[in-house]
Write a protein that binds this DNA or RNA. Structure first.
Length: 596
RNA sequence: GCACCCGUAGUUCAGAGGAUAGAACGCAGCGUUGCGGACGCUGAAGUCGGGGGUUCGAGUCCCUCCGGGUGCACCA
């Protein structure tokens, strides 16, 4: 008999299945080091976990998969792990069965599901967390806005992905450093500066200050259409900035401070934070050293004009200029330097760049150059490429004027949610506060539920609905469960409520079982999400939890359960659901509300 | 021209090489003198872009074609 200590983490159920199979296969056939894959079957008839191991080894063993499955299932069942709960031992799996044509299906017993539900109630804030990443450092760089205009809806997706990934990785035990690398200088910044100098008359912002600056950038684009010559003036400004011209620097500082002031509000309303801010203006010409090293290593060469160019053709990538012919460094060279400094400072195990997928080739070049420079940490760099955000009326474009500002989106969503909840909440202040949370959840969930690689069509009508796969639906489910608990006067009381107090013939109703079982998988989805750098994994899991709860809620009465102990069990389940919803929404960057 | 990403129900999206490809919205019905009906239940709806290949098994991996998006050296 295999005995597991009482401290077994529920996140290890899947690993327990792996161990069990691995040992059985070793004992029966002497096979080791197999890649054992454990599935969570969608079809409830196939148990809580399943494996296809029999197919993989059938040829080696010259046996029929079903026979192998039968043998392994039999062996695994005889080693059915025992776990201690309430001062006695019980076996985790109710059934371990072979299934044609050769799967092995594992079904958790009711008592384990009860046990896990009780543990969630006791463990509260830590359920689903792990120490997978203990002692490992991950830098997550995201947002990277430019100081010439306010943030649009595409930045919002970036902010939400980066911020959520950071939370997920922290939850898995990694030491995470959230970094923002601001593009605070360059020709694009000088464009809005130019217009302010020409037409601003020293005005102070009369609206949100980053929007105020953005208006001058728009003004530039309009004027450029009529008079392309003004680009030279912008370039001249950049030259003056680089030479340290006091007048230009003063305008630059003033306008950038306005932008930062505006962003502060944007980030605060989005509940997006950073540990470290880096500024491009502080990296001016820092790339020379890197460029020289590249020359030395022979991966770059000087061309006729004096520019230094990394030759990447033989690696299937376009060549990349490192130093311009005038000797100044380009953006990518600064980024190389930044990566190097970052590694020297943090000795990171991973560095994630959350940047939209248009820059995929660029990052491939960047990472290749770092590898060719001989830095052995080049394989720790990861580009988290995400797709574009578009609207039902089409893709965004500054030319057609269809650019949606992130602040405006959130404000619109808040208004929509205020209308939704005005009926159930009467105090205006509470309406506003609640609407803010619901709107942010709608916004974030709408962005995060989609796989990062996919483009997103962001539909206001859709994401703010209280029904369907939306943030508000999840919050509604949470509030609904909370309302029942409140009515019952329920308080967590794990010590007094024991499995033994359940009726002798107790077996879970299918709806109870489905809910309790889906809760077991939370830690597994957190891990999966962290490995794939995909918050969408947690998002879709969370929706499944909400569906299972509502289905349970619709079918069975909690407060009028047939016995006190059954009622208490259902309250336990409801409370455990709330904890999982709260934790997973938290990992997606959203807060729950008690009433809505 | 070259490269990368994406093609799954009318629409928006899930699918960890496996079992009868799943949700949500919309559509057609149904349910509760009941804990929040902002819910639940049932149903219709699919040649997984086309064609080859690998595999016991392909929506998933490989090749090719088609369609959509994006990027290709001194912008960032």
């Amino acid at each position: 008999m295999m005995l597991l200590s009482m401290k077994i983490r529920k996140s290890e159920v899947k690993r327990t299945v792996e161990d069990l199979i691995s040992k059985a296969v070793h004992k029966l056939y002497g096979l080791d080091n197999l890649n054992i894959e454990i599935d969570i079957p969608e079809n409830e008839n196939f148990g809580d976990y399943s494996t296809n191991i029999s197919f993989g080894i059938a040829k080696t063993l010259d046996k029929i998969p079903f026979q192998i499955a039968t043998e392994i299932a039999h062996e695994a069942l005889s080693e059915n792990p025992q776990i201690e709960f309430e001062d006695s031992l019980y076996s985790i799996f109710g059934k371990i069965e072979p299934h044609a044509p050769g799967f092995i299906n594992f079904t958790l017993c009711d008592k384990f599901l009860f046990h896990n539900t009780a543990d969630i109630n006791m463990g509260d804030k830590s359920y689903g967390s792990s120490d997978l990443g203990a002692g490992k450092k991950i830098i997550v760089e995201y947002s990277q806005p430019n100081t010439n205009k306010p943030q649009h809806i595409g930045h919002a997706r970036n902010n939400f992905i980066g911020s959520s990934l950071s939370k997920i990785l922290s939850y898995c035990g990694y030491d995470v450093v959230k970094t923002n690398y601001v593009g605070d200088i360059g020709i694009h910044i000088c464009k809005s500066m130019l217009m302010y100098i020409k037409h601003g008359n020293g005005r102070q912002p009369d609206k949100k200050s980053d929007h105020f600056v953005g208006d001058f950038y728009t003004m530039y684009e309009q004027e450029f259409e009529k008079n392309p010559g003004i680009e030279k003036e912008a370039q001249e400004l950049l030259r003056r900035w680089e030479s340290g011209d006091a007048e230009v620097r003063a305008v630059w500082e003033k306008m950038n401070s306005w932008v930062y002031e505006g962003w502060k509000k944007t980030y605060s309303e989005q509940k997006v934070e950073f540990d470290v801010w880096e500024y491009e203006s502080e990296k001016i010409n820092v790339g020379k050293e890197i460029a020289m090293l590249a020359l030395e290593k022979g991966l770059a060469e000087k061309d006729g004009t004096g520019a230094i160019i990394a030759r990447l053709e033989k690696y299937g990538l376009p060549d990349k200029v490192l130093l311009r012919s005038d000797g100044t460094s380009v953006y990518s060279t600064k980024e190389l330097q930044l990566a190097k400094e970052s590694f020297e400072k943090y000795k990171f195990d991973k560095r994630l760049y959350v940047v939209d997928m248009r820059q995929s080739d660029y990052f491939r070049q960047l990472f290749k150059i770092i590898e060719l420079l001989g830095f052995d940490w080049s394989d720790r760099l990861v580009h988290i490429a995400y797709g574009m955000v578009s609207l039902p009326q089409g893709k965004m474009s500054s030319r057609t004027g269809l650019v949606v500002n992130a602040d405006d989106v959130l404000e619109d969503l808040i208004s929509l949610e205020e209308e939704e909840i005005r009926n159930s909440i009467k105090t205006p202040k509470i309406v506003r506060e609640t609407a803010e949370r619901v709107a942010l959840a709608a916004f974030k969930y709408g962005m995060l539920k989609v796989d990062p690689k996919q483009d997103v069509v962001f539909n206001y009508e859709h994401v703010t609905k209280f029904e369907g796969n939306t943030g508000p639906y999840l919050l509604y489910t949470y509030a609904r469960a909370g309302s029942v608990l409140e009515k019952a006067g329920f308080e967590i009381d794990g010590e007094k409520f024991r499995y033994e107090s359940m009726p002798k013939e107790f077996s879970m109703h299918p709806k109870e079982r489905a809910l309790a079982a889906v809760l077991v998988h939370f830690p597994e989805y957190v891990l999966k999400s962290s490995k794939e750098y995909a918050p969408s994994q947690i998002a879709n899991y969370t929706f499944e939890v909400a569906q299972k709860f509502n289905s349970f809620y619709g079918e069975l009465s909690i407060l009028d359960a047939s016995s006190e102990s059954l009622k208490k069990f259902r309250l336990f389940l409801s409370h455990a659901t709330m904890i999982v919803l709260r934790q997973s929404l938290g990992l997606l960057g959203s807060e729950v509300v008690e009433k809505m």
